[in-house]
């Protein structure tokens, strides 16, 4: 089985409704990201099974190693549960992280809707909002790099530093190869103020003299996140070997 294929238990695929609901759950999970990598849990092959029993849904997921960070694992478990519970027909959702050093505690806590500090009372000093925010900023920069990397350059085109969001949107409608990276970037850009297309992760405009340094920053973040994701894929594949 390829790592990104979900195992379907033969017991549960006995009717068309169940099949359709599994597909719905899977679609919902396609929106859940590993915050550290800015890749979805489905694309990374983390989802190992989806089972349906009426309005009860069980999702099992596994990370590339037993020693992946507990905080990111917790965030993914919480997000998976929220995505499943948001489906109108779901009454309960059981999320199981398996093969992980903190699996038991995380699974119990997510079942009881505990916060991270409640889950690890002696071992955490704060909730994970700050961590999530830091990695959202990194994802923003990496997605910006993905756009800048494929934008046409040279000729009579103005420097990307001068582009507006509207111009970027127009260009993405005209050039199909830009559609996906631009959509991914603007999904995070929309939360920030102003009309300039390319800004810092804090929402600030980039002064012309600092454009080159900004390019370095976005590139460094993009390289780092891409290599991390690749590292995870390598370890996940080795785990199956």
């Amino acid at each position: 089985m390829r790592p990104n294929e979900v195992a379907l238990s033969p017991m549960v695929v006995d009717d068309a409704l169940t099949c359709a609901r599994i597909a719905e759950v899977r679609l919902a999970l396609e929106a859940i990201r590993d915050p550290e990598l800015d890749e979805t849990v489905t694309a990374m092959g983390f989802i190992k099974s989806i089972e349906i029993d009426g309005g009860s849904v069980s999702v099992t997921f596994q990370l590339p190693t037993q020693w992946c960070a507990a905080n990111f694992a917790f965030l993914m478990a919480v997000d998976i549960k929220a995505a499943v519970m948001a489906l109108p027909w779901v009454r309960s959702a059981e999320i199981t992280l398996r093969e992980h050093f903190a699996a038991r505690r995380i699974n119990e806590a997510v079942a009881l809707d505990l916060s991270f500090m409640e889950a690890f009372p002696q071992k955490a000093e704060g909730e994970l909002d700050g961590l999530r925010h830091t990695f959202m900023e990194k994802a923003f920069l990496a997605r910006q790099h993905a756009v800048l990397d494929v934008l046409p350059k040279g000729g009579n085109l103005p420097s990307p530093a001068l582009w507006t969001v509207a111009e970027l949107e127009r260009m993405a409608r005209e050039e199909t190869y830009l559609a996906e990276p631009v959509a991914r970037y603007l999904a995070l850009r929309r939360n920030l103020p102003g009309q300039v297309a390319f800004i810092t992760a804090r929402g600030e405009a980039i002064e012309p003299g600092l454009w080159a340094a900004h390019m370095r920053t976005v590139r460094g973040t993009a390289v780092t996140m891409a290599a991390n994701a690749e590292h995870c894929r390598i370890l996940a594949a080795a785990n199956l070997a």
């Binding site: 190693t65 020693w67 960070a69 507990a70 905080n71 690890f120 071992k123 000093e125 704060g126 961590l131």
Partner: peptide
């Protein structure tokens, strides 16, 4: 650095 660090909410890496 990493993989787990007290406090666990902190980015261990």
């Amino acid at each position: 650095k990493g993989p787990t660090t007290h406090p666990l909410d902190y980015d261990a890496f």
